Simulated assay, not measured.
Amino acid sequence: MKPDDPKLTSENELLTNIDPAEFDQFRNLLETASGIHLPTSKQYLVATRLRRIMHDHSFGTLRQLIDNLKQSGPTGLKAQVVEAMTTNETFWFRDSYPFHYLSNELLPQWLSKPLNQRIRVWCAACSSGQEPYSLAMIAAEYARKHSLAAPPIEIMATDISEAMLTRCRSGIYDHLELTRGLSNTLLTRYFDDVGEGSWQVKDALRKQINFRRLNLVESFSSFGRFDIVFCRNVLIYFSADLKTDILARIHQQLQPEGVLFLGASEGLGNASSLFSMVQCNPGIAYRSVQK
């Protein structure tokens, strides 16, 4: 379907002139389903991202979409809408300092203790997988450097989007994605050329990561305890109360002295009493405070 298709254009016009009360209902439904808190100024964003769904389901108004969302289960229309409204933006070794701090400080410190043989890491909101695969490469490089039999990290990665998780598990990335933060050395060492400008993460690395679906508004207590949690660039989409709730529950999943990494523009807010700040020079991490 071409971008200037008249049917799609009319649908976009309908959405950009939606009733404020209907828009509030949509915002509430989205927040309940995913935790995403949309400001009232985001009508154009909604119009842009829902355009294809409106067309595919022959919805002429936002009211029709809302009525169907109320009847949709988590894997139906609701999942499509959450997928459309989720921002999936990431790249390899993003911000760099968490990976340097892990390799140069945390791994040597923790693995020097007799009982610490493996470190459990959770990547929340892993998007298309660059973050957990970056961690897996850090662990593999550490193992190479120190002549370890196996990488010393156990990684679990979660995301709300099944489509993103499918991409993660395939481990296939195109040329543009591979140029964003990945060195040629790591590309040739940990990827296989699968043709047409795409490369696939090697099987050995992919098998190190357990990809699972998780909506952060849901319970994750069954995941067990972690030494490190990456929850970066996702809390900015949630309300202050939900951020505090998620951070408090992450704190419960962290081992004593466990470390949390947030995005560069994110802070602890009302959960600051649960963590102490760690200077990574540059960057900041947060260490779990046990009460």
Rank of each mutant, 00 (worst) to 15 (best):
D5E: 11
N88A: 11
L50S: 03
T32M: 06
D203Y: 10
E13D: 09
A140T: 13
V289E: 11
A21H: 12
E13A: 14
G269P: 06
T61F: 10
L77R: 04
T90D: 10
T16A: 08
P3A: 11
I209E: 03
Y237K: 09
V82Y: 06
W199R: 15
L115P: 00
S239Y: 12
S96F: 08
P282I: 03
H100E: 14
T90R: 05
Y97D: 07
H37K: 13
N17T: 13
R169I: 06
L268E: 01
A157R: 01
Q109V: 10
P256T: 07
D95F: 08
A163I: 12
T87G: 04
Y101N: 06
D192H: 11
S161K: 09
M277D: 09
F275W: 04
S134Y: 02
G197T: 12
L62H: 09
Q80W: 02
G224S: 07
Y237I: 11
Q255V: 12
S103D: 13
V46H: 01
E131V: 08
E266V: 07
K42Q: 13
V46E: 00
D241R: 12
N12I: 06
H37L: 08
D241L: 12
V278D: 01
S265T: 15
Q25P: 02
K207E: 13
R51G: 04
H146D: 07
G60R: 06
L186Q: 15
Y142T: 09
L115F: 10
S103N: 12
T158D: 04
D193K: 06
L62F: 13
L216I: 08
T40P: 02
Q117P: 00
I66R: 05
N184E: 15
S222Q: 11
S198N: 10
E89W: 01
A264R: 01
T86R: 04
T188K: 14
R167V: 11
L45P: 01
Q208P: 01
F261V: 07
S183F: 10
G35I: 01
R249L: 05
W122L: 14
E31T: 11
L260C: 06
I138G: 00
R51Q: 11
Y173T: 05
S41R: 12
Q279G: 10
L30W: 01
N88V: 12
S272K: 14
T61N: 08
E31M: 15
E162M: 13
A21M: 09
A149G: 01
C280M: 15
Y44E: 09
E89C: 01
F26E: 00
L30D: 04
F223S: 05
L247F: 05
T9R: 11
A47D: 03
W110S: 02
Y190H: 13
L148K: 10
P74E: 11
N104K: 15
F223T: 06
I66S: 06
I236C: 03
K202I: 09
T86I: 08
T179W: 05
D5P: 06
L205H: 03
S221D: 12
Y101H: 15
S198Q: 14
Q200D: 06
S127A: 15
R249E: 05
L178E: 07
S222P: 00
V217H: 01
L50D: 03
L242D: 03
E83M: 14
S147M: 07
G73I: 03
A33Q: 02
L216E: 00
F23H: 14
W92E: 00
K291M: 05
A157S: 08
T40L: 13
K291I: 08
L182E: 03
A140Q: 10
L62K: 04
D203E: 15
